[in-house]
């Protein structure tokens, strides 16, 4: 399964929100279910799913959905 599909699945599982079609500017707190706790859970789930580790600075950079995909892709 490609990164985008899996991250979308994880996002929807954790936030209980349907991922909008346009995720270009989507960032933490734009959706009710995507708060800081859900965001940390999303990071943990991505780390587990792809056996990768985000550094502190990378977590700070991934406030946008598109950045999550981008950084995850770079790590694989």
């Amino acid at each position: 399964m490609d990164v985008e599909t899996r991250v979308k699945q994880l996002f929807e599982l954790i936030t209980n929100e349907k991922l909008p079609d346009d995720t270009g500017n989507l960032e933490v707190d734009d959706l009710e279910g995507w708060d800081s706790v859900a965001h940390m859970n999303l990071i943990l789930a991505i780390e587990e799913a792809f056996s990768v580790t985000f550094s502190e600075s990378e977590i700070e950079l991934t406030t946008h959905y598109s950045q999550l995909i981008e950084i995850t892709n770079k790590k694989l």
Binding site: L10, L13, I14, N41, L44, A45, E48, A49
Partner: peptide, 12 residues
């Protein structure tokens, strides 16, 4: 259990 497994189990 992994976080994803736990999330899925909790939902169920």
């Amino acid at each position: 259990m992994s976080l994803v497994t736990i999330l899925e189990e909790n939902k169920k």
